[in-house]
Design a protein around this nucleic acid. Structure first.
Lengths: 212, 212
DNA sequence: AATGCGTGTTACTTGCGGTAACAGGCAGTC
DNA sequence: GACTGCCTGTTACCGCAAGTAACACGCATT
């Protein structure tokens, strides 16, 4: 009766959305975040208004697109973070997972980090302007840190600061590395882990006066 | 007469640019990075083509605008970094300077971090998509680290990784903090410095299994 | 047969970046 | 004094992309 019919229609509606998202994905990965709605519609074999009916506006489409990739990346990172190993091993594995991901698919990475080119964000939200991916990674890492480490009083606050800070470190270093490729990935991972392991504080001053 | 006239005209040519930049500054700070060229021209009391004659395109205007603010911020950071004090004191002072700056003028901060909304960047430059401010801060910090610290072999590479990494940490944590204001600035500074001082590596596992 | 409803279309509006093409003031030159 | 170049300024336009009616077909339900 209605149920079967409705289910069919529902599924068609859902899978249509998927198809549209995949078409959008192809276009965005080919043309960059500046891909026009017309281009995406053409790739999907349809016209603009359908996209707008499904996703509201360009921001909605881009948000849906970003969520897919963000979810996928976060899953990999969680796996690396949950592996049974020493703490430093886990940190390095997580860094390496992230860097391998952005190395393998730089276009996806670039798209995820520049969501604002799609969504308008008219209200001038000071702060919170970072890519949602960064925020989500920061919060996830904060949660893991707070669960596993004994940081004394104020541990929750501290864990969140560290979560966002470490993610930012990873992001900025990765972005720079991706642009200049100054060293192999493993070396970058090791250098960053060294930084987190306090080698900055432990280093000796250079000869001549009080050091940095 | 001639001289005064000529001087007037010359200075008008030079300072015209400054006036336009200041008008653009007002509009961007009021309306956000989405300010239109028409709006900027109106604020300056002129019309669009003049802006284009002075700055080429919107990206040029925004670049000129960004450079002013970036230079100013970098000057403050250099001052904090060069102050005569212990290493940890300097690190904290630099973090605090940066955070105080973004706290005091969040609109400037937001504008500096979103340059891509102005310039088109059609060619899909993977990597190098970060705000120029981040890159410049990273490079400056790398230079200071390499000058002052004895890091053994590969010190230059390591210093650059750390420079960009630390800047990214500061940026991401600052962005998150600016959005949520979960704690006073001084506490954030202290937490980040602790992170750089290896407290992550030194922390004990929480009871129950191998820690993070 | 008639009624919704979901899917699709064409054709339009609005707004922005960017660009001619033209108009006036004010040097210096014959 | 008239002529030429240059700088500043204008109006009016092009192209393009986001977003929106308004209309049209297919198809199950009544």
């Amino acid at each position: 009766m209605d149920t079967t019919q409705r289910t069919d229609q529902q599924r068609s509606a859902d899978s249509r959305r998927r198809e549209l998202l995949e078409a959008a994905d192809r276009v965005v990965l080919r043309d960059g975040p500046h891909a026009s709605m017309n281009a995406i519609a053409a790739e999907a074999g349809i016209t603009k208004p359908i996209l707008y009916r499904h996703f509201g506006d360009k921001g909605g489409l881009y948000a849906a697109l970003a969520q897919r990739h963000t979810d996928a990346l976060l899953d990999s990172l969680r796996a690396a973070l949950d592996a049974p190993a020493e703490r430093r091993q886990r940190v390095e594995a997580t860094l390496d997972t992230y860097l391998a991901a952005i190395e393998a698919r730089p276009q996806v990475y670039r798209f995820l980090m520049h969501p604002a080119e799609g969504g308008i964000t008219q209200g001038f939200d000071v702060g919170k302007h970072s890519a949602p991916l960064l925020r989500r990674m920061g919060e996830e890492l904060a949660q893991v840190i707070e669960e596993r480490l004994d940081l004394g009083p104020g541990s929750q606050q501290l864990a969140r600061v560290w979560g966002h800070g470490i993610v930012g470190m990873m992001h900025a270093a990765g972005d720079w590395w991706l642009g200049e490729r100054p060293c192999p990935r493993q070396e970058l991972v090791h250098s960053l882990a060294d930084l987190l392991w306090g080698r900055l504080a432990a280093a000796d001053d250079r000869t001549g006066g009080p050091g940095f």
